[in-house]
Amino acid sequence: MYYPRFDGTHTDSVPSGLAGIITLPVAIYGFFLFPDTPRTTKAPYLTAEEKALAISRVPEIPERTPISWGFLKHCFSTWFWYFFVVLWMIAGETESFSSNALLALYMKSHPTKKYTVSQLNNYPTGVPAVGIVSTLFWATLTDFWGGRRYLVGYWIGITGVVTGALILAYPESTSINFGMYYWAGSVYACQATFFAWANDVLRYEEDSLRAVVLASMNMGNNAINAWWSIVFYGANFAPYFTRGMYAMIATSIALAIWTTLLVWMQRRTDRRREHEGVYASREEKDPVSVQNEPDENKGAY
């Protein structure tokens, strides 16, 4: 495996096995410290009260056998799969400025300014730095505000439209290009928050359905990203990536619209769940009167 450098050379060949060694500490950490599910956790850092609280937040759901036609039919008959997979297919491409190292390509292909090798290797690292700060900020904020993950969708929508439009409007301005690429790094926040959003909405569903939805989100994004970066952000489009800027604006607008639709579906589902909970409690108190209710009242929402 060769790692390109911006001085036109390559580093020494590194076996792919050695390149993956960094994952071993993470795997060891996860084996001993990841808490598992609330009912099976043996994490030493959780007290009995904390385990009980976790169990109370995730009601027990009868598990279904995932390898069956019935399970597949169930997966594709709910809105969860379609809406969250499309959400991440769109949102994943709003990270294109960062994931395709556009700032580095912009610097390397700058028509007038020549950057040193040190600058080419160091300046673009500010983009993922912004992404780290943004991820921590939005994950903490949306938790503090009761899990309003959809706010990140609107932030990304604004970010994509503004950054793409300003780069299109001022392609010769180095300061604007740098500023917009750094700002665009903040869209990294969507990874943590959107997968958390899917987990939040699916917490009342069986674990197998949630696993399928989360895996499909990644699969859908990878299927799009396999060709998206080539069509819109290839190195031959540097330094201005005009086609990519229009794609970013369109994708960001689509994300804001899709986020709104998903919020509507979530609230609709929350109302249905609330209704079913009230219905169950009423039936325990007075099963005869509830059974005699008109069908249209039982099927609300």
Rank of each mutant, 00 (worst) to 15 (best):
N177C: 13
N177K: 09
F178S: 04
F178I: 07
G179D: 08
G179A: 10
M180F: 09
Y181Q: 10
W183P: 03
A184L: 02
S186K: 01
Y188W: 13
A189S: 15
Q191A: 12
Q191W: 14
T193E: 03
F195Q: 08
F195K: 00
F195H: 10
F195W: 15
W197A: 00
W197S: 02
W197F: 07
A198E: 03
D200M: 07
D200G: 07
V201F: 08
L202P: 02
R203E: 10
R203A: 12
R203H: 14
E205Y: 11
E205W: 06
E205K: 12
E205N: 13
E206P: 00
D207T: 13
D207Q: 14
S208L: 01
L209V: 01
L209D: 03
R210C: 11
A211V: 10
A211W: 05
A211H: 11
V212R: 00
V213D: 01
L214V: 15
A215V: 11
A215E: 07
S216Y: 09
M217I: 07
M217L: 10
M217W: 08
M217F: 09
M219G: 11
N222K: 11
A223Q: 03
I224W: 12
I224K: 06
N225C: 11
N225M: 10
N225D: 13
N225E: 08
A226Y: 15
W227R: 11
S229L: 09
F232Q: 01
G234R: 08
G234N: 15
A235C: 07
N236I: 09
N236L: 09
F237L: 14
F237V: 03
A238I: 04
A238C: 07
P239Q: 06
T242P: 00
T242A: 08
R243K: 14
R243Y: 13
Y246A: 05
Y246N: 06
Y246R: 03
Y246I: 01
I249D: 05
A250R: 04
S252F: 01
S252A: 15
I253H: 03
I253Q: 05
A256K: 00
I257L: 11
I257P: 05
I257E: 00
W258Q: 01
T259L: 02
L261V: 08
L261D: 03
W264Q: 12
M265H: 10
M265N: 09
Q266F: 09
Q266G: 10
R267K: 14
R267H: 14
R268M: 09
R268I: 00
T269H: 12
D270R: 12
R271I: 08
